[in-house]
C-alpha cells in the first residue's frame, strides 16, 4: 500500500513526488512521457539558463528516485475508490494507495470520428458504468484500440454478449495482461468513415461505403483522460479544468490535482509550483487524517 500514487510524470507530478519523498512517504509515480519532452530548449525556468525538456525531466526523475520514490512507465486505465482505499489499474498491474495526486497534463482525446459528438446520449456514450444498462442484450461496439477499449468491452459483457471492438483502421495494441481477455471479443479493424443515423445512431459506416447496423457505441480514448477517469471517481471539471479547493484537493476527498490540468498559464514553472502545493497538501492530509504511519510511530 502506497501513501500516495501520483498519476503523471511530468514536472507537476515529479514536483509533488519530491516533497512527499523527502518527507519519507511511500510514493509511486505512474505515467507515460511528458509534454515537456517536446520542448527542444527551455529558457524560462528560473535558475537555469537553457536546457532541453528531456534533460530537465531526466534530472528531475533522478532527484525524485534519489529520495526513494518509485517511478513506473505505465498507462493508467482506471482509478476507483473502495473502503477508503484507492485502486489504480494500469495496463500492467494494479496498485493501492491512501491518496491520489492527478498530474495528467492538458486533456487529450482520440482523433475525432465524424458525427460522434452529434449522437452523444443518442446511442453514443463515453461511460459504460453510467449508461451500459440501456444496452442490455443489444448489439454494441466499443471504438478504440488500446487496453482501455478492452476494459470497456469487459464491463459491457455484464449487459450483453454481443460486443465488438472497432479499432478504426488500427491494430489492437495491448499488453500481455489483456491478450486473453481480448479473445472474448470480435475485433473489426476497418477504418470508420462516419457514424450515421436519423435521430439516433444506427450505423457505423466504413470506407468503401460498407456499413453495419449497431444499437450503441462506447468510445474509449487510447489513453484515458480526466473525463474518462472521472467516470469512476466523479471529479468535477469546469471549462476543461479540474476544480480544486485552496489545498489543491478536488471535490473527491484525498484526490489532489496539479499542473496543466488546473492551470490557465501552462508552463513548467507553474506546473512545478502547483505540484509542490499538492504534495504539501497531501502530506498535511495524511497527518491530519491519521493515515501517516510515520507520525503514528512517533
Amino acid at each position: 500500500m502506497y501513501d500516495c500514487i501520483i498519476v503523471g510524470k511530468g514536472p507537476a507530478g515529479l514536483s509533488a513526488a519530491l516533497y512527499l519523498g523527502r518527507d519519507g512517504y511511500k510514493v509511486l509515480v505512474v505515467g507515460l512521457g511528458s509534454m515537456l519532452e517536446k520542448a527542444e530548449v527551455v529558457e524560462n525556468y528560473l535558475g537555469i539558463f537553457a536546457i532541453s525538456g528531456t534533460e530537465l525531466l531526466q534530472i528531475s526523475k533522478k532527484q525524485v528516485t534519489n529520495v526513494g520514490v518509485e517511478i513506473k512507465e505505465e498507462k493508467v486505465l482506471n482509478i476507483y475508490n473502495k473502503n477508503e482505499e484507492f485502486n489504480v489499474v494500469t495496463n500492467i498491474g494494479e496498485y493501492k494507495s491512501k491518496c491520489i495526486i492527478l498530474a495528467l497534463g492538458s486533456k487529450k482525446g482520440n482523433a475525432k470520428i465524424k458525427n460522434a459528438e452529434k449522437f452523444v446520449g443518442k446511442a453514443i456514450s463515453y461511460c459504460v458504468s453510467c449508461d451500459g444498462f440501456f444496452y442490455k442484450d443489444k448489439n454494441v461496439g466499443v471504438i478504440g484500440s488500446s487496453e482501455h477499449a478492452v476494459e470497456e468491452a469487459i464491463k459491457l459483457k455484464n449487459y450483453t454478449d454481443n460486443v465488438t471492438i472497432y479499432t478504426n483502421g488500427k491494430d489492437m495494441k495491448v499488453t500481455d495482461k489483456y491478450i486473453d481477455y481480448l479473445k472474448n471479443f470480435n475485433v473489426d479493424n476497418r477504418k470508420i468513415e462516419h457514424l450515421d443515423g436519423e435521430d439516433e445512431l444506427s450505423h457505423i459506416v466504413f470506407s468503401e461505403d460498407d456499413k453495419i447496423k449497431i444499437d450503441g457505441v462506447f468510445i474509449a480514448n487510447d489513453t484515458p483522460n480526466i473525463d474518462d477517469l472521472s467516470n469512476n471517481l466523479g471529479i468535477l471539471t469546469e471549462k476543461n479544468k479540474v476544480v480544486i479547493d485552496e489545498n489543491n484537493m478536488t471535490n473527491v476527498k484525498a484526490v489532489f490535482a496539479c499542473g496543466d490540468m488546473i492551470n490557465d498559464f501552462k508552463q513548467v514553472s507553474t506546473a512545478v509550483g502547483s505540484g509542490a502545493a499538492a504534495g504539501n497538501s497531501c502530506i498535511k492530509y495524511l497527518i491530519n487524517s491519521n493515515l501517516s504511519e510515520k507520525v503514528k510511530k512517533l
Binding site: C127, C130, N231, G234
Partner: peptide, 11 residues
Amino acid sequence: TTPTCIWCKTA
C-alpha cells in the same frame, strides 16, 4: 439514475 453511475451519486 443507475446504481453504478458516479455522476448520479454526485448529483
